[in-house]
């Protein structure tokens, strides 16, 4: 399980490099692309893991952090951006989540979190890891 985000990061960076360099390097991109579907499946597998309590707690934290009214619905698949959060807000949300759950989110991971579900999945994974080492 722990190996998943590492490969994910590596793939994205290699994609970025490919995108920025000349067209000559477009050939290996096909290989990289074939790596994406497998990434998606792994993400779906993880998303089944997140418990509803975690998701609800994340929703609550997001709500208070963004000072949203009680009538605003925060669903697991809500994007932070569509709730009116900018990148600074996202950093704040991740920091609050870190504190609430007593975990530490790495820089690369925190930039990949865009929805409540993604946050909840990552939290579950990190909490599990923490409990395993404790």
């Amino acid at each position: 399980m722990a190996a998943v985000p590492v490969t994910c990061v590596r793939l994205t960076t290699s994609m970025q490099i490919v995108g920025k360099t000349s067209a000559l390097k477009l050939v290996p991109m096909g290989r990289n692309k074939s790596g994406f579907p497998c990434l998606r499946t792994s993400r779906f597998q993880i998303s089944c893991v997140a418990k509803p309590e975690t998701v609800n707690k994340v929703c609550e934290i997001v709500k208070t952090q963004l000072a949203l009214g009680a009538d605003t619905v925060v669903a697991p698949d809500s994007k932070f951006a569509s709730l009116g959060a900018d990148s600074l807000d996202t950093v704040e949300i991740v920091m609050t989540l870190e504190e609430e759950f007593g975990i530490s989110v790495e820089e690369e991971n925190s930039q990949n979190i865009t929805t409540v579900q993604e946050a909840a999945d990552l939290i579950e994974k990190l909490v599990e890891k923490k409990n395993a080492t404790a």
Partner: peptide
Amino acid sequence: AQKLSGIQKQVLSLYRGFL
């Protein structure tokens, strides 16, 4: 996700450092 430029990442990382 929205793609962040290197400098944007640096700014966010600094912000995280402050927090």
